[in-house]
Simulated assay, not measured.
Amino acid sequence: METEVTQINLYKDGDAWCALIGDDIQSGTCGFGQTKSDALRALAISLNLNSTPAIIEPNTFRKD
């Protein structure tokens, strides 16, 4: 079984955090959120939506 390593760039973009796989937002896959965690969750959603950027809004996830 082969393992692939993918680099995720995590940076502040205006008022939001961006989690990006690829060279830039236009050609890569990304997610945005108010926190680093939200941006990473949005990136995971984007990967499942065939690279459509996702945005996690505050209070989207329940905290049980």
Rank of each mutant, 00 (worst) to 15 (best):
C30V: 11
Q34P: 03
T29Y: 01
F32Y: 15
A19S: 15
G14R: 01
W17C: 07
A44R: 07
N59V: 07
I56C: 08
D24I: 00
S46Y: 00
G31V: 01
A39C: 03
K36M: 10
A19Q: 10
D24M: 04
V5A: 09
D15T: 08
E57A: 05
G28D: 03
A44K: 07
G14K: 05
S37Y: 07
A42D: 03
P58V: 03
L49A: 14
E2P: 10
N50H: 06
Q7K: 14
Q7A: 14
I45W: 09
A39L: 01
S51P: 03
I8K: 12
C18F: 00
K36C: 08
E57S: 06
S51F: 04
A19H: 10
D38R: 00
D15M: 07
I8P: 10
N59P: 01
N9Y: 07
K12M: 05
L49V: 11
L20I: 08
A39R: 00
W17P: 07
Q34M: 09
L43M: 08
A44M: 06
T3K: 15
D23C: 12
A44C: 06
T35Q: 07
I55T: 14
N59Y: 10
I56G: 03
I21R: 03
Q34W: 06
S51H: 09
T6S: 12
D15N: 14
A54W: 09
G28K: 04
C30E: 08
E57N: 05
D38H: 05
F61D: 10
S46N: 04
T60P: 00
I45A: 08
A39P: 02
A54F: 06
D24H: 09
G28E: 01
L43E: 03
D24Y: 04
I21F: 05
A16L: 15
Q34G: 14
T52L: 08
L49P: 05
I21V: 15
L10Q: 14
A16N: 13
L40A: 06
R62S: 13
A19N: 09
T60A: 06
D13S: 13
N50M: 05
I45F: 02
G14Y: 02
R41T: 11
L47M: 14
C30M: 13
P53L: 07
D15Y: 05
I56V: 13
D64N: 15
D64H: 13
S27H: 13
I55Q: 12
L43T: 04
D38F: 02
G31L: 01
A42F: 00
I25G: 02
L49H: 09
G33S: 01
L10W: 08
N9Q: 15
V5D: 11
L10H: 06
F32G: 01
S27P: 03
S37P: 01
R62G: 12
I56T: 05
